[in-house]
Amino acid sequence: MAAASDLTRTEVGLFERLRNNRNFLGLLFMLPAGVLLLVFLTYPLFLGVWLGLTDVKVGRPGRFIGLENYFWLFEDSVFWLSVFNTFLYTVVASIIKFVLGLWLAMILNNHIPFKAFIRAIVLMPFIVPTVLSALAFWWIYDSQDSVISWILIEMGLIDTTIDFLGQPNSARASVIAANIWRGIPFVAITLLAGLQTIPPSLHEAATIDGATDWQRFRHITFPLLTPIIAVVMTFSVLFTFTDFQLIWVMTRGGPINATHLMATLSYQRAIVGGSLGEGAAIATAMIPFLLSAILFSYFGLQRRKWQQGGRDD
């Protein structure tokens, strides 16, 4: 055995050691993202919650008033109407987006001519800035110059123009339709990606096992797609629940608050009306609903039992 004193020991400096320390490097690289999250997400979130507990108005520093804003909102029928509208908007739009999106994804998953081109076109509504498409819909739904009314009149189906955004229920249906148009690409393209992860041999095996097209969808495609459906629908619900731009451009919550969502009502009370505290309270009231959607997806997203254990090949 060689004597230990014969071996030379190379000393490295502190800087050199830090440069090779994985924990230190990890911390260093995480820092920028951490700062961004703190400044742009955590701080505004807590500021919003705090504002909801005060009576701050534009130009006047408020004071802490506890849950007074919430007691006040509890009595406010417009607030409850906006909650109802938000749920109606989210549930109806999400269900239709899911059904149409899945249908579109299945069509695009087949061998069709000009596949890449058609897929690109499907993405269009998603690429156009929301405000721009909202403006286009606003025009389409115009009470005098609506292209839909014009076509229907030319076809002889109706006599007078339809006042799409002037009546509560038709306004609700109209904004929901616009939201669906805008949301379908996200659902369709994501589900298409999911469909493409299903090996064709499973369909071939099912065909040989005697499954019809519907049975293949029911027993193979749909169950294998459920994990991705959970992801895409969670996001879709979150986007729809917090939607602001479409409504604000098209109706500003009207007529008679029939299309006010919680997000638009919050903006109207806080920024337009100047009651920052009250607006913040409305926005904070969305948190429990969003949280439950996230929890729902958290459990929905957990790997299914059949996905657990073993190797992936």
């Binding site: 090996p199 099912a206 065909t207 040989i208 499954a211 193979i220 169950p223 294998l224 299914r304 059949w306």
Partner: peptide
């Protein structure tokens, strides 16, 4: 295929992962 009364074993087994 379903009426040919044949069965096939695939290279990647093609087992239904959720069953």
């Amino acid at each position: 295929p379903k009426q040919r009364d044949i069965a096939m074993v695939f290279q990647n087994y093609a087992l239904y992962p959720h069953m």
